[in-house]
Structures are given as structure tokens and as C-alpha cells.
Design a protein around this nucleic acid. Structure first.
Length: 276
DNA sequence: ATGGTAGGGGGCCTA
């Protein structure tokens, strides 16, 4: 089965682009970030028409995460344990090939500018995420936490590392927060499959970044050991960045050695469950 | 050279 993550920068503005990509790529589960829409206004039908069950955790104007799945949701959990006032995490649990698979859509705080409380919020949120993942690791779950982590982990993950000096995404503290997740025992799926640099998931709208390939890799799928054992492949799909009205991010698709069987369920079932 | 662009919401903020 294939699991995708994509920061679409506004689901309302991107619905046509998203539908076009989904029709072509046909992933089994999709983690969306920056949906920028309240739950009641989410375009559930547009994705339902493609065979996806939908679970959302949004807010007005900013942030917002969602899960699309061809498999029915067994559970949905919204928000990060420890309390949050920003919609940045949603988790779903699915039954696949006789095992439970947890998939989370993650939208970590940007944290700019560094000399502001936003940077402190970013680091505090990353620590809460680590604590959340520790609980799932202790339960030996098969899980994928995928999304926009808003960290450039190493020089390999930027076309021009020097451009990002002083940016919250490239600070020693942000890199340490990301390493902390990796050192819990998580696998960066794309990096596990591609050791070399030059692969990016984000190009700024400004200053011709896409044309210059002035990109960074900040969208990841982090796998628990049980999920990493199933990893077959991971790819970045750059094509949608060149389409009309693109997101500034592109999808990352991970393939796991699991057999997925599509099954649509009534959407209200996907909206139940508030574990945190 | 401290700009540049985009989305959302509602008269600027976030990225």
C-alpha cells in the first residue's frame, strides 16, 4: 500500500489540483497539511467521490490537517496530547493485512522569526510530538507520522544551505528536535531509500525558487521500526509544483509491503473519536 | 537589494 503526505497550502484553493493528483497517483492513504479551513466547510465530497474516507482537524484561516483513506477508519484522534490551540495533528488507525496501522498527518510550527515566541512554540511543540511518538513506540505500533516538519535536517536537504542560515527551519535547535525524533528509533523513509542530496519537497513562491531549484526537504514520513520493516520505496513527486496554481510543497509517497483493500464507509463514522 | 508571492479573511497575518 502507498501512503502520501502533501502540504497543499489551502484545500479550497487547491481542490482541483489535489483531485487531479489523486486521480493520477491513487494513494491508499493521504496526509494533508495547511488545509486552512474549518471542519464544516471541508470539501469532503470532492474526495469522497474518489473513494476516500475523510477525517479532518481544521481551524479558520491557518494550519489544519486531514486524512484521506480508502480504508475505513477504526479510530481517529485529533490534536497533540498535552493540549494545543492549533490544528496541527490528526491520527487514524486502520486494519491492514491483519494488523493495526496508525497514520498521522503532522504540521509542525514554522517558528519564524527566531527572536519571537513562535520559535519557542515550535520547539515546545516538537517536544510534545516526541512524547506522543514515545507512547506509540512503547506500544510497538506499526505507524507512519508524515507531514511538514518545518525542519531542514542537514545540508543535504537544501540546494543552497547558506540561504537558510538564521531561519528557524535550519537552526541547531530545530535540527536537534528532528534528530531527537530519529534517535527515538524512527526511520526517515525517503532518506532510507535515497542517500544522496538534491531532493526537495518545498520551493518558495518568491524569487523564482522553483526555476532555480532553490528548494529544501522539509516534508517527511517517519516510520516506527515495525513500519520500517515493511518499507519498499519512497519517492518525491515533483510534478505538481510545475502545474497551474501549485502548492509550494509537493507530495511524498511511501510504499509499504501491506495489502490494502479499499472500503468506503459513511463519512460520519470517520468523524467520531476524540482520544485526546 | 531586506524585496520577492500566495492564501485566507476581512481591513494584516502567516508562511
Amino acid at each position: 500500500m502507498r501512503i502520501a503526505t502533501w502540504n497543499i497550502n489551502g484545500v479550497r484553493a487547491r481542490i482541483e489540483t489535489a483531485v487531479n493528483w489523486l486521480k493520477d497517483a491513487n494513494p491508499d492513504i493521504v496526509c494533508l497539511q495547511e488545509t486552512k479551513i474549518e471542519d464544516a466547510a471541508f470539501p469532503t465530497e470532492a474526495f469522497g467521490d474518489l473513494g476516500y474516507n475523510v477525517a479532518v482537524h481544521g481551524q479558520k484561516g491557518f494550519n489544519g490537517v486531514a486524512l484521506l483513506s480508502k480504508l475505513p477508519f477504526d479510530e481517529v484522534a485529533r490534536g497533540i496530547p498535552g493540549g494545543e490551540d492549533q490544528a496541527r495533528l490528526i491520527e487514524g488507525v486502520f486494519s491492514v493485512s491483519g494488523r493495526a496501522l496508525r497514520v498521522a498527518s503532522v504540521y509542525a510550527p514554522n517558528g519564524n522569526p527566531i527572536a519571537s515566541d513562535k520559535f519557542d512554540y515550535k520547539l515546545a511543540w516538537m517536544e510534545k510530538l516526541a512524547q506522543r511518538m514515545l507512547v506509540a513506540l512503547a506500544a510497538e505500533e506499526t505507524f507512519v507520522f508524515a507531514g511538514d516538519f518545518n525542519v531542514i535536517p542537514t545540508d543535504l536537504d537544501a540546494r543552497f544551505p547558506k540561504h537558510w542560515v538564521g531561519d528557524a527551519l535550519f537552526t541547531p535547535q530545530a535540527k536537534a528536535a528532528f534528530r531527537r525524533l530519529q534517535y527515538l528509533g524512527l526511520t526517515d523513509a525517503f532518506r532510507a531509500c535515497h542517500g544522496e542530496g538534491g531532493h526537495f519537497t518545498y520551493w518558495d513562491y518568491q524569487a523564482g525558487s522553483w526555476q532555480k531549484d532553490d528548494g529544501i526537504r522539509i516534508d517527511f514520513a517517519l516510520l516506527s521500526p515495525q513500519a520500517a520493516d515493511l518499507l519498499l520505496n519512497a519517492e518525491i513527486d515533483k510534478r505538481p509544483r510545475a502545474w497551474a496554481k501549485p502548492s509550494d510543497h509537493v507530495p511524498v509517497v511511501v510504499e509499504l509491503d501491506l495489502e490494502a483493500v479499499s472500503q468506503k464507509q459513511p463519512p460520519q463514522l470517520a468523524l467520531t473519536g476524540q482520544l485526546f
